[in-house]
Write a protein that binds this DNA or RNA. Structure first.
Length: 284
DNA sequence: AAAATTTGACCTTG
DNA sequence: CAAGGTCAAATTTT
């Protein structure tokens, strides 16, 4: 539906992701390995980011083979415009029931999937407008729309926790923002090498994200995070601690889980890394 | 008081 | 009809 072949734009997105997130992290990782990056984030964190970058790019390229999310491809059609026209009359004619649930069907927008370990701050302001239990899913799905919808911005997103063990959230974006975006649009994590371990924690989450988190938890926990780390009980489960190991990865890539306690500084790790890094360089 | 969230009702789609 | 997406009244937060 979109101009200039849809496939290639997906590819461009994947390339962007690999370059921006994956390669940046990989670059830092290399300096860590070489011993130079002492104020950088931990190597494990960087590895996680690289793997996540791979994972997300794969998600993009072969649109989600795995799961319950309906196809995120950008094919679909804007069907039955009758809804728009007859909306008014249809809604008020029936019984006494007010016009609840009279809404326009979602437009044909391209979608974009993303996985992350915590709800990410994508630089936009979102307003939660719903939450649903999803069949066969452990966690509810939350629905957000752009705060500036009154200005015509139709962007929405869905966020759902998809995994418990390595905590994983899947976010699907619908539509593009046409509102004036404040600040940088797509910065996800600032990983300036100087500011050490700016790792993701609740203190960096926006309010909506905090709200989303709280609603995924047992109700006893609700409404307790303002700017604060939620309840003390096992709260470290919700944090991304910098020394978290990343061996049970989302079923695509695994990393060196076979070595129990030995450091992962294998002898030829740098060589291995160079191979990976090479991929980034050739990718462009 | 205004803005954001919660939550069940309502609508669409398959 | 079931499942998922959206609306909006009620409620909570700012």
């Amino acid at each position: 539906m979109d101009n200039l072949g849809g496939g290639s734009s997906t590819r461009m997105k994947a390339i962007e992701d690999l370059l921006r997130e994956g390669r940046d992290s990989a670059t830092q990782l290399r300096s860590v390995i070489n011993g130079n990056g002492e104020n950088s984030p931990s190597a494990q964190k960087l590895v996680k980011e690289v793997l996540m970058s791979f994972h997300n790019s794969l998600l993009l390229l072969n649109n989600n083979p795995t799961s319950e999310f309906h196809d995120a491809s950008n094919v679909q059609l804007w069907d039955s415009p009758k809804l728009e026209d007859s909306q008014e009359s249809n809604c008020k004619n029936s019984t006494v029931k007010p016009r609840r649930g009279c809404y326009k069907r979602r437009r044909t927008e391209q979608t974009r999937e993303k996985e992350s370990e915590a709800p990410i701050d994508d630089g936009h302001q979102w307003r939660k407008y719903g939450q649903k239990e999803i069949l066969n899913a452990k966690f509810p799905r939350s629905y957000f729309r752009c705060t500036h919808r009154d200005q015509g911005c139709q962007a929405t997103k869905q966020v759902q926790r998809v995994q418990e063990d390595p905590i994983l959230y899947k976010t699907i974006y619908y539509g593009e923002h046409c509102c004036k975006n404040m600040g940088n649009p797509e910065i996800i994590l600032d990983m300036s090498p100087s500011s050490s371990s700016k790792f993701l924690s609740f203190s960096t989450l926006s309010k909506q994200e905090c709200a989303f988190l709280s609603s995924s938890f047992p109700s006893s926990v609700k409404r307790e995070c303002k700017e604060e780390i939620p309840p003390s009980t096992s709260s470290n489960d919700y944090l991304i601690s910098s020394d978290l190991t990343f061996d049970a990865s989302p079923r695509h890539l695994t990393l060196s889980s076979s070595t129990p306690h030995s450091e992962y500084k294998a002898v030829d790790f740098p060589d291995l890394f160079d191979d990976v890094f090479q991929e980034f360089l050739e990718f462009r």
